Amino acid sequence: MNWYLDVLKKYVVFSGRARRQEYWMFALFHILAVVVLTVLDGVLGTNPLLTGLYTLAVLLPALGVCVRRLHDTGRSGWWLLISLVPLVGSIILLVFLVSEGKPEENQYGPNPKLVQAA
C-alpha cells in the first residue's frame, strides 16, 4: 500500500526514475480499486460515476509513474504514445514496462534501487 501512496504523493512528478516494483504495485492497487468501485457503482446504480471520478483523480499520478518507469529503462516518456498504435503498441509498451531498469545512472537520474538501499 505504501507504493501506491508514494505514487500519489508524487502527483505530477514526471522526472526521475521508478523501479518496476513501484510501478507494478501501483498498477495492482489501481486495478483493485477500479474493480471495487465498478462493483460499487453497479450496486448503487451510479455506473460509471465513482469509477470515472477515481480514474480522473489518479490519471496524472498514473501517467507520472509510467513516464518514470520508462525513464528507468533509459527511454523517454514520449514512448508512452506508442500505446496509441493498435495492439502492437500496447505489447511494445508492456515489454518496456517489465524490462529491467538500467543499473547505472542515466540522463534521468541515479538508479532507484541503489538510492533506496543507501
Rank of each mutant, 00 (worst) to 15 (best):
G64Y: 11
R20T: 05
D6Q: 14
L37R: 05
A117I: 00
T51H: 02
P112S: 01
W79M: 12
V35P: 11
L50D: 08
Q116M: 05
L94G: 12
K9E: 05
Q116L: 08
V34M: 14
E105C: 10
I31N: 10
S15H: 12
L28S: 08
S76I: 00
Y54K: 02
V85W: 03
F14D: 05
T55V: 08
T46P: 09
L37I: 00
Y108M: 02
L70W: 09
L87H: 05
V58E: 07
V12N: 09
E104N: 13
L5I: 14
V36H: 06
L63R: 06
L94M: 15
L8T: 04
F96T: 12
M1Q: 12
L49T: 00
V35R: 14
K113S: 11
G16R: 01
S83A: 15
M25K: 09
F29K: 02
L97M: 14
I31M: 14
N47C: 00
N106S: 04
P61Q: 10
T73C: 01
V98N: 00
E104G: 10
N106V: 00
P61F: 09
A62F: 14
V58H: 09
P86G: 02
L37Q: 10
A57T: 13
L8S: 06
V85K: 09
P112V: 02
I92E: 02
V67Q: 04
E105V: 15
D41G: 05
S76R: 03
N111L: 05
Y4A: 02
V43Y: 11
A62Q: 15
P61Y: 12
Y4F: 15
G64H: 09
G74A: 01
L56E: 07
A118I: 00
G101L: 08
G42A: 01
T55G: 13
N2M: 09
A62N: 13
L49K: 09
L81P: 03
P86D: 08
V98E: 01
S76A: 03
M1I: 12
V65K: 05
S83I: 07
Q116D: 12
T46K: 13
G101M: 04
L60H: 13
Y108C: 03
L93Y: 06
L81W: 06
M25Y: 13
E105R: 15
M25N: 05
V36W: 04
A33L: 14
N47H: 11
R68E: 02
